[in-house]
């Protein structure tokens, strides 16, 4: 018991330290801030225009979409999917990749030499990243409203709840991913693999009902699918009752992913200690 008390201040300090460092780096590279604000608006553009082209000049194709998605508002449909996907995407690069970067620079070893439980360091970093990303998501929603006129019918608090409920699963994935990257020593392929899978399966830009049955079953396992579905439901005006199942799934899968991620990292740490490839490229 007394041990966790002893660790609490260092947890708090490490979160603040990491957040402060990240914000400082952000401000040093203004292009990064700009891009975080510009990407949410820019990224759905291609999909939006593709939708428009597929719908046709006289909306020849739209009836099929309405049947599958239950809405004709493909604008809201796409931005809600892409914003969550971008969150995962940025998380993979910055948070998931941060350990790899430190491995390359050799600072990973010095961090691991610090007398703090690595788990707390990681959770601190995850919370710092999540706080930053939520700020950017708020900005993105404002931009969606101003530029695309997208607004939600349900309560904004419910939307916030969906996002909060997604945090554990997103960063649980981040832990697993970080372990994968430390082990495989390559981030590019790993990021593409994970985000590509999500882009294909999670129904980010289309109703998953259009996929073959086995793909739908895969989609149902991935937490992001539930996050997107709940977001869309809130935007369409659904209440807590309708999204409860998705929220529970998000929390449960989040807990599992975090546990799995921490285990994987502990395993990798052991392995690296044996093989001594911590600072190796």
């Amino acid at each position: 018991m007394h041990q966790s008390v002893a660790l609490r201040p260092s947890l708090l300090r490490s979160i603040l330290r990491v957040a402060w460092r990240d914000i400082k780096i952000l401000v040093r590279y203004p292009t990064w801030v700009i891009s975080l604000c510009v990407w949410p608006v820019m990224f759905p553009l291609g999909y939006l225009f593709t939708y428009r082209a597929l719908a046709g000049p006289q909306n020849e194709g739209l009836s099929s979409f309405v049947q599958l998605a239950g809405t004709s508002n493909y604008l809201a449909y796409v931005v809600s999917g892409t914003i969550l996907w971008m969150w995962v995407n940025v998380m993979l690069w910055t948070f998931g990749g941060s350990l790899r970067n430190e491995q390359l620079r050799g600072t990973l070893e010095s961090n691991w030499l610090a007398p703090v439980d690595k788990t707390f360091l990681l959770i601190g970093a995850a919370l710092a990243d999540a706080a930053q990303m939520m700020l950017f998501m708020c900005i993105a929603w404002v931009e969606f409203y101003l530029i695309y006129g997208v607004w939600w019918l349900g309560s904004p608090w419910h939307l916030g709840l969906v996002i909060l409920a997604s945090v554990p699963s997103v960063y649980g994935l981040g832990f697993v991913f970080a372990a994968l990257v430390l082990w495989a020593k390559q981030i590019g392929v790993a990021v593409n693999l994970v985000r590509g899978t999500m882009l294909i399966f999670c129904g980010i830009t289309y109703p998953i009902a259009v996929m073959p049955g086995w793909m739908v079953r895969v989609a149902e396992v991935i937490p992001l699918t539930h996050a997107i579905r709940a977001t869309r439901a809130v935007m369409a005006g659904d209440g807590l009752g309708e999204i409860a199942a998705d929220l529970w799934y998000l929390l449960l899968s989040g807990a599992l992913l975090i546990a799995a991620g921490l285990l994987a990292l502990r395993f990798i740490q052991q392995r690296i200690r044996c093989s001594g490839t911590l600072g190796h490229h």
């Binding site: 999909y47 593709t50 939708y51 082209a53 597929l54 719908a55 046709g56 000049p57 006289q58 909306n59 020849e60 194709g61 739209l62 009836s63 099929s64 979409f65 599958l68 998605a69 593409n192 590509g196 899978t197 882009l199 294909i200 980010i204 830009t205 289309y206 109703p207 259009v210 996929m211």
Partner: peptide, 28 residues
């Protein structure tokens, strides 16, 4: 990698297809 880019767009086109044909695209 290109498959990962193409697949979502393929399913998008499927969700707008009428009888397997993208009549909307044909209109443009």
């Amino acid at each position: 990698e290109p498959i990962m880019w193409l697949t979502p767009l393929h399913f998008m086109s499927r969700s707008f297809a009428v009888g397997g044909q993208n009549l909307g695209l044909a209109g443009y």
